[in-house]
């Protein structure tokens, strides 16, 4: 039972908003020590796993490109584009992005868009522009809500699209796990059964985006 103290450390640490990097290290020590490991053994295990997970941090290699286009005014241009496309308000704009993200993820193309290379430089400014072109005013709280919704839309599209692609990690994990239990499955069946949830996810999030849009316009009218 003591092993669960590490989980508790994570929950408490995040709740009181301690620096998360520190929380993670503390949780690792609490867990390891409770499981009877020595402090050095914990540090070694943690360091080894950190080194083996460097893949994750490689994604920031796209930042220099994003920085260059931002320096040359891409956010301003994205906003201006929406002022010109007066017919498109924030709801349909983000629904179109959701469809694009979910569709390309379902084809296995998860790396062609994302928070760093799409949402920050292009989609979030477009969403802001779309609200403004429909008479909405953006105070800080409102701007934050619009940006957060753009980021959320990317995640929903990615998560509930990628599992339709056969060769994605989660599908391979499921096939491998079930195989150890003596159940042989063709990965394609797992992909196909991801489609009903994908459709519901699209409909739910799209409906929310339309309501979000309407709320922005009601704010504009008031």
């Amino acid at each position: 039972m003591l092993t669960l103290l590490g989980v508790a450390a994570v929950v408490v640490g995040f709740a009181v908003r301690l620096n998360p990097l520190l929380v993670v290290v503390i949780a690792a020590f609490v867990t390891g020590l409770a499981a009877g490991m020595t402090p050095v053994a914990v540090l070694e295990a943690f360091g080894k796993a950190f080194n083996e997970s460097r893949l994750i941090t490689v994604a920031y290699l796209v930042l220099p490109m994003v920085g260059v286009v931002e320096r040359a005014g891409i956010q301003e241009q994205a906003k201006k584009l929406m002022l010109r496309l007066r017919g498109v308000s924030v709801g349909p704009l983000l629904i179109a992005y959701l469809l694009f993200r979910q569709g390309t993820s379902a084809l296995g193309l998860t790396s062609i868009a994302g928070q760093t290379q799409s949402i920050r430089p292009i989609v979030a400014p477009m969403a802001e522009g779309a609200v403004e072109s429909h008479g909405g005013t953006l105070d800080d709280a409102e701007r934050q809500r619009v940006k957060a919704m753009a980021a959320a839309t990317d995640n929903v599209g990615l998560f509930f699209g990628e599992d339709i692609f056969v060769a994605i990690g989660s599908i391979l994990l499921m096939v491998g796990f079930l195989a150890t239990a003596g159940i042989t499955l063709d990965p394609i069946h797992l992909s196909l059964w991801a489609i009903p949830t994908a459709i519901v996810a699209f409909l739910l999030h799209a409906a929310r985006l339309l309501l979000f849009d309407r709320a922005r316009r009601r704010g504009a009218a008031a």
Binding site: L21, A49, S53, Y60, L63, P64, G67
Partner: peptide
């Protein structure tokens, strides 16, 4: 410009990798 954006993300940039490592420690401890 890359550095400007990297500093905007700050320590949060390393959190995913740290959490992956924590997951490994959790797994070791069962």
């Amino acid at each position: 410009e890359g550095r400007r954006l990297m500093d905007t993300v700050g320590w949060a940039a390393l959190l995913p990798q740290m959490l992956a490592a924590l997951g490994a420690v959790f797994a070791l401890a069962g």
